[in-house]
């Protein structure tokens, strides 16, 4: 996957009369982790959704660039991995089946051994891989969600509160994942957790 940077310029978002974001600018650079911080309601998740292209900004714009060339919007999703609290994987399927499914959709049909290895690096033991996700604890579901985001080695990784519901070991696993992606991808982490804020090479503070 070629390196991609994400530029956002004077991005603003209104929901009806309520302004959530006002003229936020910045760049997500390959090899860097951008931490988006700010109090609840400051628009951290909204900004990540706009950067992902699942939410349209009310003003301003976002551009994905591969070198000098702009990546067409229709190609954003294939270069993107995302995990956020408003996303879930399929509860009727096991962790391996979920990853197999998302891998097929993204054209990265990995062998079960590679999928199991990915889950293990995120702290989900092998004995749990073939059980329906619906029977998992919230922390185990979070691990599968993160594996889904990282599965296709995306050039842009957006993580919204990635350690939520995770124990200390889970937090360490996410830190290792972010460190792995930092080497070759553009990473953004929306968080208020001081441990996650420490991962950042750059920081964007949003205010209410």
């Amino acid at each position: 996957m070629e390196a991609i940077s994400v530029e956002f310029t004077k991005v603003g978002k209104r929901f009806g009369a309520r302004a959530v974001l006002a003229a936020v600018s910045g760049t997500l650079r390959p090899g860097e982790v951008l931490v988006v911080a700010g109090p609840n309601g400051a628009g951290k998740s909204t900004l990540l959704n706009i950067l992902a292209g699942v939410l349209r900004p009310s003003r301003g714009g976002v551009a994905y660039r591969r070198g000098d060339e702009e990546v067409p919007r229709r190609e954003w999703f294939e270069n993107l991995g995302m995990a956020s609290p408003d996303m879930a994987v399929y509860e009727e399927l096991s962790a391996i089946e979920n990853l197999r499914f998302f891998g097929r959709l993204r054209g990265h049909a990995l062998a079960d051994g590679a999928l199991a290895e990915l889950l293990e690096t995120l702290g989900l033991p092998v004995r749990e891989h073939h059980r329906a996700v619906g029977t998992y604890s919230s922390g185990m579901k979070q691990r599968v969600k993160l594996a889904q985001a990282a599965l296709h080695a995306p050039a842009v990784l957006l993580l919204d509160e990635p350690s939520s519901n995770l124990d200390a070991a889970g937090h360490e696993a996410v830190a290792a994942l972010v460190a792995r992606f930092r080497a070759r991808a553009a990473v953004a982490v929306a968080t208020n957790d001081p441990r996650e804020i420490a991962w950042g090479d750059a920081r964007l503070d949003l205010a209410l």
Binding site: V54, F77, D86, A88, V89, L105, R106, K145
Partner: peptide, 16 residues
């Protein structure tokens, strides 16, 4: 309802 729509939206083409 299950919050899988966004996950699916990011992974698959709409026509698929």
């Amino acid at each position: 309802d299950a919050h899988t729509a966004k996950t699916l939206r990011l992974a698959a083409r709409p026509l698929a």
